[in-house]
């Protein structure tokens, strides 16, 4: 029995996002970065959000954490976490909500470590301030945490610049799970990481998830990884969700042309070398309609020739 089968048993939503719309308001014009996006994440579920850069993934993640800064503005929709209205939380509620209820690993997190403190000092800080452990206990846990992400605990004494980028990112991921949040948001956490570490971190997260039942919002543009690790996933394009379904269904039966092209951009690890083209330049979808259910649990935004700009998908391989 795999963890996924266990944790996917009940679908009690821990997070519910409805019609979320986020704009970046400029002096002359504003961009709608997230456009009427709805999804929910079940308890213990790994939900993937895929799509190329600029499609609005990080904006969604930042909205969930209430970390959006000027000029971003949530102009519509709702976010509920464990039944609570996240958009209505007071600063005091938010302080607890962030990092203890929901933790996030940012895209460029490995550069967010404090350069003048050792890795050990930074991890110990989390335990002493947020969990109230003694310094000694915090240090012991900090060592364990590093081992969890395969960093030798001697590195507790290292400064961030003395670690390679991968090690820094691993340290940051370890710090995010330190307080065992119930929702972990990972915004392209493995973009700079090698496969073994990536797999181990995800395996580790799944193990912890099995134990504690937390959920994961996993953002990436690596379709192979996402399909393997997520229970359900959504594919975004230009601020809209174009397809959402069980990850296995997206893999075997992608419906939207954009999803199909994205799935086709990964070289296989077996078989002959086949030339790939990825997404051809100039493909554009516009006025993406609301999702329609094409089979149970599989939703696709209707598409037709009129929705594509010229040049469309010729050359895109599957």
């Amino acid at each position: 029995m795999t963890v996924s089968q266990v944790s996917f048993g009940t679908h009690e939503a821990v997070l519910e996002v409805k019609d979320l719309t986020v704009k970046y308001v400029g002096d002359t014009r504003s961009t709608t970065a997230v456009d009427r996006v709805s999804f929910s994440i079940g308890t213990g579920e790994i939900f993937g959000l895929a799509g190329e850069s600029g499609c609005g993934k990080s904006t969604i993640a930042n909205s969930l954490m209430r970390l959006l800064k000027h000029p971003a503005r949530i102009s519509g929709g709702s976010i509920r976490f464990g039944g609570k209205d996240v958009l209505a939380m007071s600063p005091e509620e938010l302080r607890r909500f962030r990092w203890q209820d929901v933790a996030m690993v940012f895209q460029s997190a490995m550069n967010s470590l404090n350069p003048v403190l050792t890795i050990g000092e930074q991890i110990t800080d989390i335990y002493t301030t947020h969990a109230g452990y003694s310094r000694k206990e915090s240090l012991r846990r900090a060592g364990e945490l590093l081992e969890l992400v395969r960093i030798n605990p001697v590195r507790l004494k290292s400064y961030p610049h003395q670690l390679s980028g991968g090690m820094r990112q691993r340290a940051v991921i370890a710090m995010a799970v330190a307080l065992k949040p119930s929702l972990l948001i990972l915004d392209e956490p493995t973009t700079a990481l090698d496969v073994v570490v990536q797999q181990e971190i995800m395996a580790q997260i799944k193990e912890l998830q099995h134990e504690l039942g937390f959920s994961v919002l996993f953002i990436t543009h690596d379709m192979s990884l996402m399909v393997e690790l997520s229970h359900r996933m959504a594919v975004m394009y230009g601020g809209r969700i174009v397809e959402t379904a069980k990850a296995a269904d997206i893999h075997t039966n992608p419906q939207h042309p954009y999803t199909q092209a994205l799935m086709g951009a990964f070289p296989p690890l077996t078989g002959p070398r086949v030339p790939l083209t990825g997404l051809p330049d100039g493909v554009k979808f516009r006025n993406i309609p609301d999702l329609a259910e094409v089979s149970p649990g599989h939703y696709v935004a209707p598409f037709g020739a009129e929705l594509l700009e010229t040049g469309a998908l010729e050359g895109a391989t599957r």
Partner: peptide, 19 residues
Amino acid sequence: LVSAVPDPARAGSYDPVRR
């Protein structure tokens, strides 16, 4: 390294114990 490459064929059944 080779075994750790994500494999969409394993969709949804990733098994940390086996790993």
